[in-house]
Protein backbone atom coordinates (compact mmCIF):
# COMPACT_ATOMS: atom_id res chain seq x y z
CA UNK A 1 0.00 0.00 0.00
CA UNK A 2 1.32 3.40 -0.96
CA UNK A 3 2.33 5.84 1.74
CA UNK A 4 -0.17 8.32 3.00
CA UNK A 5 0.14 11.88 1.70
CA UNK A 6 -2.76 13.66 3.32
CA UNK A 7 -4.37 12.64 6.59
CA UNK A 8 -7.68 14.11 7.62
CA UNK A 9 -8.82 13.48 11.18
CA UNK A 10 -12.10 14.63 12.71
CA UNK A 11 -12.60 17.35 10.17
CA UNK A 12 -15.67 19.49 10.77
CA UNK A 13 -16.76 22.49 8.75
CA UNK A 14 -19.38 24.80 10.13
CA UNK A 15 -20.91 27.98 8.72
CA UNK A 16 -22.38 30.72 10.83
CA UNK A 17 -25.50 32.06 9.20
CA UNK A 18 -28.29 34.38 10.20
CA UNK A 19 -30.41 31.31 10.97
CA UNK A 20 -27.78 29.69 13.18
CA UNK A 21 -24.95 27.30 12.43
CA UNK A 22 -24.92 25.03 9.39
CA UNK A 23 -22.91 21.82 9.72
CA UNK A 24 -21.44 21.20 6.28
CA UNK A 25 -18.89 18.52 7.15
CA UNK A 26 -18.89 16.30 10.24
CA UNK A 27 -16.38 13.87 11.80
CA UNK A 28 -14.54 13.27 8.57
CA UNK A 29 -11.61 10.84 8.67
CA UNK A 30 -9.79 9.92 5.52
CA UNK A 31 -6.45 9.79 3.84
CA UNK A 32 -5.11 10.40 0.39
CA UNK A 33 -2.20 8.21 -0.66
CA UNK A 34 0.67 9.33 -2.83
CA UNK A 35 -0.11 9.12 -6.50
CA UNK A 36 -3.62 7.75 -6.15
CA UNK A 37 -6.88 9.12 -7.51
CA UNK A 38 -9.41 9.46 -4.75
CA UNK A 39 -12.97 10.08 -5.87
CA UNK A 40 -15.49 11.79 -3.66
CA UNK A 41 -19.15 11.62 -4.68
CA UNK A 42 -22.30 13.02 -3.23
CA UNK A 43 -25.13 15.31 -4.20
CA UNK A 44 -25.14 19.09 -3.80
CA UNK A 45 -24.74 20.04 -0.17
CA UNK A 46 -23.10 16.76 0.82
CA UNK A 47 -20.01 18.66 1.94
CA UNK A 48 -17.72 17.25 -0.71
CA UNK A 49 -16.57 20.63 -2.03
CA UNK A 50 -16.44 22.32 1.37
CA UNK A 51 -14.11 19.59 2.66
CA UNK A 52 -11.48 20.52 0.11
CA UNK A 53 -12.06 24.25 0.25
CA UNK A 54 -11.47 24.02 3.99
CA UNK A 55 -8.21 22.16 3.45
CA UNK A 56 -7.11 24.79 0.94
CA UNK A 57 -8.01 27.56 3.37
CA UNK A 58 -10.59 28.86 0.89
CA UNK A 59 -13.75 28.70 2.99
CA UNK A 60 -16.14 31.62 2.78
CA UNK A 61 -15.70 34.21 5.52
CA UNK A 62 -18.45 32.72 7.70
CA UNK A 63 -16.95 29.22 7.55
CA UNK A 64 -14.82 27.57 10.25
CA UNK A 65 -12.91 24.33 10.02
CA UNK A 66 -11.91 22.18 12.97
CA UNK A 67 -9.95 18.98 13.34
CA UNK A 68 -6.63 18.03 11.87
CA UNK A 69 -5.30 17.87 8.33
CA UNK A 70 -1.70 16.76 7.80
CA UNK A 71 0.10 17.02 4.51
CA UNK A 72 3.25 14.94 4.55
CA UNK A 73 2.98 14.82 8.32
CA UNK A 74 2.70 18.58 8.73
CA UNK A 75 -0.44 20.18 10.15
CA UNK A 76 -1.98 22.50 7.54
CA UNK A 77 -5.50 23.22 8.74
CA UNK A 78 -6.22 26.88 9.56
CA UNK A 79 -2.73 28.09 8.80
CA UNK A 80 -2.17 31.85 8.80
CA UNK A 81 -2.37 33.62 5.41
CA UNK A 82 1.39 33.89 5.02
CA UNK A 83 1.97 30.17 5.42
CA UNK A 84 -0.90 29.43 3.04
CA UNK A 85 0.79 31.35 0.24
CA UNK A 86 3.68 28.87 0.42
CA UNK A 87 1.41 25.86 0.55
CA UNK A 88 -1.31 26.56 -1.97
CA UNK A 89 -0.25 26.38 -5.55
CA UNK A 90 3.07 24.97 -4.38
CA UNK A 91 2.44 21.69 -2.58
CA UNK A 92 -1.23 21.39 -3.35
CA UNK A 93 -3.26 22.92 -6.12
CA UNK A 94 -6.95 23.11 -6.87
CA UNK A 95 -9.01 23.51 -10.01
CA UNK A 96 -12.66 24.35 -10.12
CA UNK A 97 -15.89 23.50 -11.79
CA UNK A 98 -16.48 26.30 -14.23
CA UNK A 99 -13.41 27.22 -16.26
CA UNK A 100 -15.44 30.08 -17.75
CA UNK A 101 -15.50 32.00 -14.48
CA UNK A 102 -12.46 30.51 -12.74
CA UNK A 103 -10.05 32.52 -14.89
CA UNK A 104 -9.66 36.25 -14.62
CA UNK A 105 -11.20 37.79 -17.76
CA UNK A 106 -9.03 40.89 -17.41
CA UNK A 107 -5.64 39.19 -17.58
CA UNK A 108 -3.99 37.25 -20.37
CA UNK A 109 -3.72 33.51 -20.02
CA UNK A 110 0.05 33.91 -19.93
CA UNK A 111 -0.07 36.36 -17.05
CA UNK A 112 -2.27 34.02 -15.06
CA UNK A 113 0.21 31.23 -15.60
CA UNK A 114 3.55 33.00 -15.23
CA UNK A 115 2.54 34.63 -11.96
CA UNK A 116 2.57 31.21 -10.32
CA UNK A 117 6.19 30.57 -11.24
CA UNK A 118 7.22 34.13 -10.51
CA UNK A 119 5.79 33.87 -7.00
CA UNK A 120 6.62 30.28 -6.05
CA UNK A 121 9.85 29.84 -7.96
CA UNK A 122 11.16 33.40 -8.11
CA UNK A 123 11.51 33.13 -11.88
CA UNK A 124 11.68 36.12 -14.17
CA UNK A 125 8.71 36.68 -16.43
CA UNK A 126 10.79 35.50 -19.35
CA UNK A 127 11.88 32.21 -17.80
CA UNK A 128 8.37 31.61 -16.55
CA UNK A 129 6.96 32.20 -20.01
CA UNK A 130 9.22 29.60 -21.52
CA UNK A 131 8.14 27.09 -18.89
CA UNK A 132 4.47 27.89 -19.46
CA UNK A 133 4.77 27.18 -23.17
CA UNK A 134 6.02 23.71 -22.26
CA UNK A 135 3.21 23.30 -19.73
CA UNK A 136 0.55 24.20 -22.30
CA UNK A 137 2.07 21.73 -24.73
CA UNK A 138 1.92 19.01 -22.10
CA UNK A 139 -1.85 19.51 -21.87
CA UNK A 140 -2.03 19.30 -25.67
CA UNK A 141 -2.61 22.94 -26.47
CA UNK A 142 -1.01 23.74 -29.78
CA UNK A 143 0.47 27.07 -30.80
CA UNK A 144 1.16 27.65 -27.12
CA UNK A 145 3.43 30.69 -27.46
CA UNK A 146 0.76 32.68 -29.26
CA UNK A 147 -2.00 31.52 -26.97
CA UNK A 148 -0.20 32.86 -23.92
CA UNK A 149 -0.93 36.40 -25.03
CA UNK A 150 -4.62 35.68 -25.50
CA UNK A 151 -7.42 36.25 -23.03
CA UNK A 152 -9.57 33.53 -21.47
CA UNK A 153 -12.66 34.53 -23.45
CA UNK A 154 -10.79 33.63 -26.63
CA UNK A 155 -10.52 30.02 -25.41
CA UNK A 156 -13.14 27.28 -25.47
CA UNK A 157 -14.34 25.78 -22.20
CA UNK A 158 -12.30 22.64 -22.61
CA UNK A 159 -9.18 24.64 -23.45
CA UNK A 160 -9.67 26.80 -20.41
CA UNK A 161 -9.86 23.74 -18.20
CA UNK A 162 -6.65 22.48 -19.81
CA UNK A 163 -5.04 25.81 -19.00
CA UNK A 164 -6.27 25.53 -15.41
CA UNK A 165 -4.76 22.07 -15.14
CA UNK A 166 -1.49 23.17 -16.74
CA UNK A 167 -1.32 26.11 -14.33
CA UNK A 168 -2.03 23.93 -11.33
CA UNK A 169 0.73 21.53 -12.30
CA UNK A 170 3.39 24.18 -13.00
CA UNK A 171 4.91 23.69 -9.56
CA UNK A 172 4.47 19.91 -9.65
CA UNK A 173 2.36 19.78 -6.50
CA UNK A 174 1.96 16.53 -4.56
CA UNK A 175 -1.81 16.90 -4.50
CA UNK A 176 -4.21 18.17 -7.14
CA UNK A 177 -7.77 18.76 -6.01
CA UNK A 178 -10.28 18.81 -8.84
CA UNK A 179 -13.68 20.14 -7.83
CA UNK A 180 -16.18 19.04 -10.47
CA UNK A 181 -13.55 19.51 -13.19
CA UNK A 182 -15.75 18.32 -16.02
CA UNK A 183 -19.24 19.28 -14.91
CA UNK A 184 -19.38 22.44 -17.00
CA UNK A 185 -18.00 20.75 -20.10
CA UNK A 186 -19.76 18.72 -22.76
CA UNK A 187 -19.32 14.99 -22.83
CA UNK A 188 -16.59 14.61 -25.43
CA UNK A 189 -14.50 17.36 -23.87
CA UNK A 190 -15.15 15.77 -20.49
CA UNK A 191 -13.63 12.50 -21.70
CA UNK A 192 -10.58 14.35 -23.03
CA UNK A 193 -10.02 16.15 -19.74
CA UNK A 194 -10.31 12.91 -17.77
CA UNK A 195 -7.85 11.19 -20.10
CA UNK A 196 -5.52 14.15 -19.64
CA UNK A 197 -5.71 13.95 -15.86
CA UNK A 198 -4.94 10.25 -16.01
CA UNK A 199 -1.97 10.86 -18.27
CA UNK A 200 -0.58 13.62 -16.08
CA UNK A 201 -0.85 11.68 -12.86
CA UNK A 202 1.12 8.86 -14.39
CA UNK A 203 3.71 11.31 -15.62
CA UNK A 204 4.10 13.43 -12.48
CA UNK A 205 2.93 10.99 -9.80
CA UNK A 206 0.53 13.62 -8.51
CA UNK A 207 -2.19 12.42 -6.19
CA UNK A 208 -5.57 13.57 -7.48
CA UNK A 209 -8.74 14.18 -5.54
CA UNK A 210 -11.74 14.10 -7.81
CA UNK A 211 -14.81 15.73 -6.35
CA UNK A 212 -17.91 15.13 -8.43
CA UNK A 213 -21.54 14.10 -8.39
CA UNK A 214 -20.95 12.08 -11.54
CA UNK A 215 -20.40 8.39 -10.89
CA UNK A 216 -19.29 7.89 -14.47
CA UNK A 217 -16.37 10.26 -13.97
CA UNK A 218 -15.37 8.39 -10.82
CA UNK A 219 -15.54 5.05 -12.57
CA UNK A 220 -13.20 6.25 -15.30
CA UNK A 221 -10.47 7.66 -13.15
CA UNK A 222 -10.65 6.88 -9.43
CA UNK A 223 -8.79 4.16 -7.53
CA UNK A 224 -10.82 4.61 -4.37
CA UNK A 225 -14.17 6.25 -3.74
CA UNK A 226 -15.70 8.01 -0.78
CA UNK A 227 -19.45 8.53 -0.76
CA UNK A 228 -20.62 11.59 1.17
CA UNK A 229 -24.07 12.31 2.49
CA UNK A 230 -25.12 15.29 4.59
CA UNK A 231 -21.53 16.16 5.45
CA UNK A 232 -20.67 12.61 6.48
CA UNK A 233 -18.76 9.78 4.93
CA UNK A 234 -21.21 6.94 4.46
CA UNK A 235 -19.13 4.52 2.43
CA UNK A 236 -15.54 4.12 1.32
CA UNK A 237 -14.14 1.43 -0.94
CA UNK A 238 -11.92 0.56 -3.85
CA UNK A 239 -13.69 1.64 -6.99
CA UNK A 240 -14.44 -1.90 -8.17
CA UNK A 241 -15.72 -2.95 -4.77
CA UNK A 242 -18.02 0.01 -4.64
CA UNK A 243 -19.60 -0.50 -8.03
CA UNK A 244 -19.82 -4.26 -7.61
CA UNK A 245 -20.54 -4.72 -3.93
CA UNK A 246 -21.68 -1.47 -2.36
CA UNK A 247 -23.04 -1.84 1.14
CA UNK A 248 -24.80 1.43 1.80
CA UNK A 249 -28.42 2.14 0.80
CA UNK A 250 -27.47 5.66 -0.30
CA UNK A 251 -24.76 4.36 -2.62
CA UNK A 252 -27.34 2.00 -4.04
CA UNK A 253 -29.69 4.93 -4.64
CA UNK A 254 -26.95 6.90 -6.37
CA UNK A 255 -25.97 4.04 -8.64
CA UNK A 256 -29.55 3.29 -9.55
CA UNK A 257 -30.28 6.85 -10.53
CA UNK A 258 -27.57 6.90 -13.20
CA UNK A 259 -29.28 6.93 -16.61
CA UNK A 260 -28.31 3.89 -18.67
CA UNK A 261 -28.22 3.39 -22.38
CA UNK A 262 -28.97 -0.33 -22.12
CA UNK A 263 -32.36 0.27 -20.52
CA UNK A 264 -35.46 0.69 -22.71
CA UNK A 265 -36.27 4.29 -23.45
CA UNK A 266 -39.58 3.98 -21.69
CA UNK A 267 -37.97 2.93 -18.39
CA UNK A 268 -38.34 5.60 -15.75
CA UNK A 269 -35.15 6.84 -14.20
CA UNK A 270 -34.91 5.71 -10.60
CA UNK A 271 -34.67 8.48 -8.03
CA UNK A 272 -33.99 8.67 -4.32
CA UNK A 273 -37.24 9.75 -2.67
CA UNK A 274 -37.27 12.78 -0.41
CA UNK A 275 -34.72 15.54 -0.32
CA UNK A 276 -31.32 16.10 1.29
CA UNK A 277 -31.54 16.98 4.96
CA UNK A 278 -31.38 20.48 6.37
CA UNK A 279 -27.79 20.86 7.49
CA UNK A 280 -28.75 23.30 10.19
CA UNK A 281 -30.38 20.41 12.09
CA UNK A 282 -28.33 17.64 13.55
CA UNK A 283 -30.48 14.53 13.96
CA UNK A 284 -29.52 11.98 16.59
CA UNK A 285 -29.77 9.13 14.12
CA UNK A 286 -28.61 8.41 10.60
CA UNK A 287 -29.09 11.44 8.33
CA UNK A 288 -30.23 9.22 5.47
CA UNK A 289 -32.89 7.48 7.57
CA UNK A 290 -35.89 9.55 6.34
CA UNK A 291 -35.16 8.57 2.73
CA UNK A 292 -33.95 5.04 3.34
CA UNK A 293 -36.00 1.99 2.31
CA UNK A 294 -34.13 -0.22 4.77
CA UNK A 295 -34.45 2.02 7.82
CA UNK A 296 -35.46 0.57 11.14
CA UNK A 297 -35.96 1.88 14.66
CA UNK A 298 -32.28 2.06 15.59
CA UNK A 299 -31.52 4.28 12.56
CA UNK A 300 -33.71 7.02 14.00
CA UNK A 301 -32.02 6.93 17.39
CA UNK A 302 -28.40 6.26 16.76
CA UNK A 303 -25.82 7.55 14.31
CA UNK A 304 -24.24 4.53 12.62
CA UNK A 305 -20.44 4.57 13.07
CA UNK A 306 -18.09 4.11 10.14
CA UNK A 307 -17.11 0.44 10.38
CA UNK A 308 -14.59 -1.54 8.39
CA UNK A 309 -15.96 -4.45 6.43
CA UNK A 310 -12.42 -5.57 5.60
CA UNK A 311 -10.66 -5.21 2.30
CA UNK A 312 -10.43 -1.43 2.72
CA UNK A 313 -14.20 -1.21 2.60
CA UNK A 314 -15.90 1.01 5.17
CA UNK A 315 -19.50 1.99 5.65
CA UNK A 316 -21.76 3.75 8.11
CA UNK A 317 -25.04 1.86 8.24
CA UNK A 318 -27.02 -0.20 10.77
CA UNK A 319 -28.71 -2.40 8.18
CA UNK A 320 -27.20 -5.84 7.91
CA UNK A 321 -29.37 -7.58 5.35
CA UNK A 322 -28.90 -7.74 1.63
CA UNK A 323 -29.47 -4.63 -0.45
CA UNK A 324 -31.59 -4.65 -3.59
CA UNK A 325 -30.52 -6.27 -6.85
CA UNK A 326 -26.83 -5.55 -7.17
CA UNK A 327 -25.82 -3.71 -10.28
CA UNK A 328 -23.07 -4.85 -12.51
CA UNK A 329 -19.97 -2.65 -12.42
CA UNK A 330 -20.65 0.50 -14.39
Amino acid sequence: MAASLLEIRNLAVRFTTGDGPVYAVNDLDLEVRRGEVLGMVGESGSGKSQTWLAIMGLLAKNGRAEGSVRLGGEEILNLPQRALTRLRGERMAMIFQDPMTAMNPFLTVGRQMTEVLEWHRGMSRREARARCIGALESVHITDAARRLSMYPHEFSGGMRQRVMIATALLTEPQLLICDEPTTALDVTVQAQILALLDELRQRFGTAIVLVTHDLGVIAQLADRVIVMYAGRQVEQAEVHTLYGAYRHPYTEGLLRSVPRLDQPRSARLATIPGRPPDLARRPAGCPFEPRCAYASEICRRQMPPLVSLGDAHLRACHYDGALGPQERGA
Binding site: L58, G89, A93
Partner: peptide
Protein backbone atom coordinates in the same frame (compact mmCIF):
# COMPACT_ATOMS: atom_id res chain seq x y z
CA UNK B 1 -14.54 32.43 -8.73
CA UNK B 2 -11.44 33.88 -10.36
CA UNK B 3 -10.38 35.51 -7.10
CA UNK B 4 -10.74 32.12 -5.44
CA UNK B 5 -8.52 30.70 -8.19
CA UNK B 6 -5.93 33.41 -7.58
CA UNK B 7 -5.91 32.56 -3.88
CA UNK B 8 -5.75 28.84 -4.63
CA UNK B 9 -2.59 29.55 -6.61
CA UNK B 10 -1.03 30.76 -3.39
CA UNK B 11 -0.63 34.37 -4.49
Amino acid sequence: PYIRTARAKGL
